[in-house]
Design a protein around this nucleic acid. Structure first.
Lengths: 346, 346
DNA sequence: TGGCGATGCTAAAACGTTTCAAGAGCAGGG
DNA sequence: CCCTGCTCTTGAAACGTTTTAGCATCGCCA
């Protein structure tokens, strides 16, 4: 399968540390020490070596260095679906943090597939990378076990069991849904309808809990007729509006489990000449780019993908450099409400 | 600056090829041959070695392998701004293609900075990666020179001079603007206004050329009063509409140099009770996610970032494996019109 | 019986670094 | 003059592979 490159022939005579040593008239060990600017080496030698390096155009060989140092200065990010903006945002966050510390980021697309994730773990064992950040949809027993074995060089973004001794960045997404509903109720809305995602998934359940908790806290009775299900797509949001209205209950606010459905719903509302936000306020979740660009712009709850990536990388690097304690770190990030036009108070 | 990891102490006694050899009762050379499944080794030995590998949980060390083979099975993608969806899309394209060939992708964010790009090239020299794909905004003399030196392991996405002997994926963006305008004129519109981006930039000039060529081909005189400039942001598109209308010329079509401005313009048109597409058809450029989600959905010209990434990676791998010829390959991809509601014929 | 070509394996030399024990030179104290 | 304790440098041994040359063993043919 892996067609192997065949540039074995024309090797362009790489200049090595030995060449530098010869030219500078010192031993290879000395050159190495100059390169890693150790204390104990004289000024004259240091200069001669630097001169030789420049003259010969020497650059150290990363593979050799990794082999000896047992350090690659690379970290991996493993995500289920790179095409999904959420994960590319995460990658951006990780990349920035990694680069700042002199690390490179390698990207692995697991397709949500456990086999692929395993392959990434193997990369870890092969010392292709120093550490890895896993963002998994399904947290299986096998995953937990494997990740625990590599606890010293792994950070997980997502819902790991709290007793799993692995660095972990979590998201209080229940709170996210609460935020949305609280905001709606807080700005004077009385009846909040809810379009949730595919039932049976984790996001579905957490958002549902948040919705109900926020209602409960406001002393409002939960009414199943105000809740519809979509599948996170735009059309499903569009169609859900009709199903909600068919129930015959009036509502002046609508919370959608993601922005895509919210935009679909807004579209349908506009077609029905129901003014947003005057008659119905709409709040989505995710803060995708399109939420900033719709008419009206969409109020939403950001799940801070980029920030979570940043934090995870920070944690991982702390672990790798030994700055982290013996305990696994658990950080929970709180979603953030982003107020825009679609939920403005009239 | 680079705080170096300090896990040098607790090395977990890695199992090496020698351990496997000892257990299987063969020499290390033999184990290596089994691993790289060479021809000349007997069935019994092969089995014994496999058994030992499984029993000991051996995984080959990537650094050592790279060092010897002079091959890392990694490619780098260097982009000016990872936060920009265009480039993340490109990354997705590259990643997919690379993974399919057994390569890993490492991501470098240059910030459009030549110094950073150079660093990436150095990574190449250090044999940290086998090859690199550069997507640069500014193609300076220095860039061209450096990239030419590494012609054997580099592919450039963007406007490289045609005589530069480096694999190159280009984009006919003049044609992109033409496509948009042709589409508008072809579907019965008479007067096409144009909101261009920041003047003085390359994208500005190419789109301008495309706009004028399409008009010329249709036998329509260019009228400067139909052209406004924005800065690629949403508000700039919004405001440009007013400036265009202030010129007093009627127009029934509007081409915008990117989707973001197009969405801003659409918003203003809707506010002014000018129906899209009935009174004014709108076409954008880029095909961002929001274009699929606006009301009406936005007709646009896709610049195929993902596809260009895919092709570039394909070319690079061909070059690395020696399948490419001596000549540098130059591929030009043609933008693609994506018809949506905002330009529908009434 | 001797030579020959396969076949299957081993031993050892790379690959380009880092690091460690040891050596050289030198100054100062006894 | 010897010993001790510095500082700077060297040489060689790793690190874990791949690869090459060479060594048995064997059957086979002349």
């Amino acid at each position: 399968m892996n067609r192997l490159p065949a540039k074995l022939g024309g090797v362009p005579a790489h200049v090595t540390i030995a060449d530098v040593a010869k030219r500078a008239g010192v031993s290879v060990g000395t050159v190495s020490r100059v390169l890693n600017n150790a204390e104990n080496c004289g000024m004259d030698v240091r200069l001669r070596v630097r001169e030789a390096i420049d003259a010969l155009g020497y650059t150290p060989n990363h593979a050799a260095r990794s082999l000896k140092r047992r350090l690659t200065m690379q970290v991996a990010l493993v995500v289920p679906d790179l095409a999904n903006p959420v994960y590319t945002q995460m990658a951006v966050g990780v990349q920035g943090e990694a680069a700042a510390a002199g690390y490179h980021l390698t990207l692995v697309n697991s397709g949500g597939d456990w086999a692929e994730e395993r392959l990434a773990l193997q990369g870890l064992e092969e010392r292709q990378v120093d550490g890895a950040i896993f963002c998994s949809l399904k947290v299986t027993q096998g995953f937990i076990r494997s990740v625990t074995v590599h606890a010293g060089s792994v950070c997980v973004i997502g819902g790991l069991p709290l007793d799993c001794p692995v660095d972990n960045v979590r998201l209080d997404s229940v709170r996210g849904a609460e935020l949305a509903v609280e905001h709606l109720l807080g700005s004077g809305r009385r009846t909040v309808a809810f379009i949730n995602g595919t039932s049976g998934t984790v996001p579905h359940d957490t958002r549902n809990r948040g919705y109900r908790q926020a209602l409960a806290e406001a002393g409002i009775e939960y009414d199943g007729r105000l809740v519809a299900s979509g599948d996170f797509t735009m059309v499903s949001g569009y169609e859900a509006v009709d199903r909600l209205r068919a129930q015959g209950l009036e509502f002046d606010a609508l919370f959608c489990a993601n922005d895509t459905m919210a935009l679909g719903a807004m579209r349908r509302l506009q077609e029905l000449k129901i003014a947003v936000p005057e008659q119905v306020a709409v709040v989505g979740m995710d803060d995708i780019e399109a939420a900033r660009m719709s008419t009206p712009t969409l109020t939403t709850v950001s799940l801070l993908a980029r920030e979570r990536g940043r934090i995870a990388c920070e944690m991982l690097l702390r672990r790798l450099t030994g700055e982290a304690g013996a305990e696994a770190e658990k950080v929970t990030v709180l979603p953030k409400l982003i107020r825009r036009e679609s939920s403005a108070t009239q």
